[in-house]
Design a protein around this nucleic acid. Structure first.
Lengths: 226, 226
DNA sequence: GTCATTTGCTGACCAACGGTCATATGATGA
DNA sequence: TCATCATATGACCGTTGGTCAGCAAATGAC
């Protein structure tokens, strides 16, 4: 069985070499501007070999997104070690989430591209499922924090946890989208940080005083508007 | 002077023909999959003629984005006609904002693509400025609503209006990004609506009870985390 | 109306690029 | 050693955004 294992190992090594080469190039030049030829040369393989391992260029960057987000999720586990309030945890999570993309901006572009073009992408079916899964795992961290807040009595049990976790995640992505690539370079980081912190604090304050009756009133307003 | 005017008029007609043709095709097939050749044929011009009017394919779809957002902004002026609370106005704005993109999903993709790749796009300088301006006009609608809320005593004067308007806009885009192209098609619309409404209500509740002391506490927490 | 000049349009061309696959090369085992 | 199988290669292909030499049309002077 040594033969098969060696082959398997070598195949995996090649695959890693491709991903590592691609990752460097994408983050250096932007994934849109890196060609498969560039990746082939940097990984010291032929262009055709690339396609022995990946279905498409899109699949390469989706794999990179997958593994980076997976790392982020693991790293975020440390959040729960200290005994912090849920409010603190949300803000801290937001901070490390932003840092993650600030460190590799291209990764944010890749992620948003994935979200905007999910249906169009040329990926093996399993790749699609995997990326959706790890993305959901990120969102679930927020969910866990919210549940923690409910258990600790910080937030009322009335809140729609699923909805709030999506809202917080959407909010983070929206703010990052708004400021990470536009406006004066020098002030982008600080602007995102303060917007995230300031507005999440408002959201958290709203959460803390939430009553189910608030939701009902809101729905009534909706009927009147229609 | 009749000659120049006719020429000018004809040039403008050709330009409109191109934009109209492009708009139909983009929204039918997705802007990524429409070629300049397709646009040329549909507008009954040669491919080279397209480039007499627009610097690039990107500039075509940016122009479409520009004019559609401009229309949206004008249409949103009706928001202020009735005497509604700022809370109601925010929710109503959010609703029509989402409807705008629900109606033309490709437009949302174009907008997000613009935001993610602003620095990379092959546009005439003025086009870039114009699209940023109309986008800012959209954001300013939210700002006007917030100011209205402060004047009416709904929101405390302490709130950072500029930051909140960006937060709300970012939030809307983030939620739309999250759900417009992913998940079960049948439930996407409702999911976005309820997330926007539910979470904006929480945010608004937080706004209503905001005190500048809240902000200071939040900043202190930040120092402890670092 | 003719013709030189100016203006504008055309579509063949070009480079680039993702992806393919016939052919070549290397590994394996009898 | 050699037949067979597995894998790698890079020339090739179709496509696409953008270019521009050549052509067509418009204009205005005579």
């Amino acid at each position: 069985m040594g033969l098969e294992e060696r082959r398997k190992r070598e195949k995996e090594q090649r695959r890693s070499a491709i991903l590592n080469a691609a990752r460097k190039l994408f983050f250096e030049k932007g994934f849109k501007y890196v060609t498969v030829d560039n990746i082939a040369k940097k990984s010291e393989l032929s262009k055709g070999s690339i396609y022995l391992h990946f279905k498409s260029k899109e699949e390469i960057y989706t794999h990179i997104l997958f593994s980076d987000i997976e790392k982020f999720n693991k790293k975020s586990a440390h959040l729960f070690q200290d005994n912090k309030s849920a409010a603190e945890l949300i803000l801290e999570f937001a901070c490390i989430y932003f840092d993650f993309f600030l460190n590799d901006r291209e990764l944010f572009r890749i992620m948003m591209t994935f979200m905007l073009h999910t249906e169009d992408m040329n990926l093996a079916e399993s790749v699609n499922e995997h990326i959706i899964e790890v993305t959901n795992n990120t969102i679930k961290i927020i969910e866990t924090i919210l549940q923690h807040g409910i258990e600790q009595g910080e937030f009322p049990p009335d809140i729609n946890v699923r909805q709030c976790r999506n809202a917080i995640w959407g909010f983070l992505n929206g703010i990052i989208s708004l400021h990470l690539f536009t406006g004066k370079e020098a002030s982008r980081e600080e602007r995102i940080r303060s917007t995230i912190k300031g507005s999440l604090s408002i959201f958290i304050k709203g959460l803390k005083s939430f009553r189910r009756s608030d939701e009902m009133i809101s729905q009534n307003n909706n009927f009147q508007t229609i």
